[in-house]
């Protein structure tokens, strides 16, 4: 009965996925319970914000600038047909603040920082560093996971804000600098159409949600990795793929609820 076999296989895959999700949730809870341990010292957190946030600045700034410039260029070409090139600022800012800023930052973050976190934690597991820590009466969740989780969670909204701001500047540079849109109109149109409460704040909320999800996936995959070289490389790939799916899916839901 071949079809029964494949049905069984399908069932196994489903059960494994559910078990993984369960482990992920339990892990999330234990991370939340360990959060107060952060009071102990900010050194670990600073170190992690450095490696997660500061080291991601470069790719975030470059991507933000180029996305903003492309938006300026494409937006101009489209708007000029309607004689509405004055709205370029508004078009650029809205797409950045609402969507592209949070989403692209989260995707880039998964590739740059999330995968690195997973690999780092996974390697600590392979080389028995986590185990050694446990045997030295130090909880690896508190010592290793929590600082990384919190650093990722803090860094992502900050990076998203930087991405959007630099993107707007890129759009301004192309629109007003190269294509001759009036710079006063660029900013005033933007200001009158972009609402702080609805657009900027909602974009920020999105990036906070993405921050939690990206941080959670990255540390969980590292902690749950099969402790072999192959297991770690698989876990790293999974971090990027799962974060991308989660961010895109959540983005749709959040957008539907917010705007």
């Amino acid at each position: 009965m071949i079809w029964l076999d494949s049905l069984q296989e399908f069932g196994q895959i489903t059960l494994k996925a559910i078990a993984r999700m369960g482990r992920g949730n339990l892990f999330f809870l234990s991370v939340l319970r360990a959060l107060p341990s952060l009071r102990g010292g900010t050194d670990l957190l600073a170190q992690q914000i450095y490696s997660v946030g500061v080291l991601s600045l470069q790719i975030i700034m470059v991507s933000g600038l180029s996305v903003g410039m492309v938006l300026g260029l494409q937006g101009y070409n489209m708007l000029v047909d309607f004689g509405a090139e004055q709205s370029l600022g508004q078009a650029t800012a809205l797409s950045l603040v609402r969507e592209l800023g949070p989403v692209l930052t989260a995707l880039l973050f998964a590739g740059r920082a999330g995968s690195a976190l997973t690999a780092e934690i996974g390697l600590m597991k392979v080389t028995e560093q986590l185990s050694a820590m446990e045997m030295m009466a130090v909880d690896p969740i508190k010592r290793v996971i929590v600082p990384r989780f919190v650093a990722a969670l803090i860094s992502l909204p900050m990076l998203a804000a930087i991405f959007s701001a630099i993107g707007v500047l890129g759009g301004f540079f192309v629109g007003a600098g190269l294509l001759g849109v009036d710079s006063g109109a660029f900013w005033s149109q933007m200001q009158s159409k972009v609402s702080f409460g609805e657009d900027v704040l909602n974009g920020f909320i999105k990036s906070v949600v993405f921050g939690v999800v990206a941080a959670w996936i990255a540390v969980f995959e590292g902690y749950d990795a099969v402790p072999t070289t192959e297991g770690v490389s698989r876990a790293t790939t999974r971090t990027v793929v799962e974060t991308a799916f989660a961010v895109l899916g959540l983005d749709f839901i959040l957008t539907a609820v917010m705007f």
Partner: peptide, 28 residues
Amino acid sequence: VEIAVGGFVVISLAAMVMLAMKVSNLSA
């Protein structure tokens, strides 16, 4: 590390202020 993290926070605060004041209408 601490200098870099401080710089990072300053840049992102500047970005947030810009999004609030210059890009959106919080100031207006």
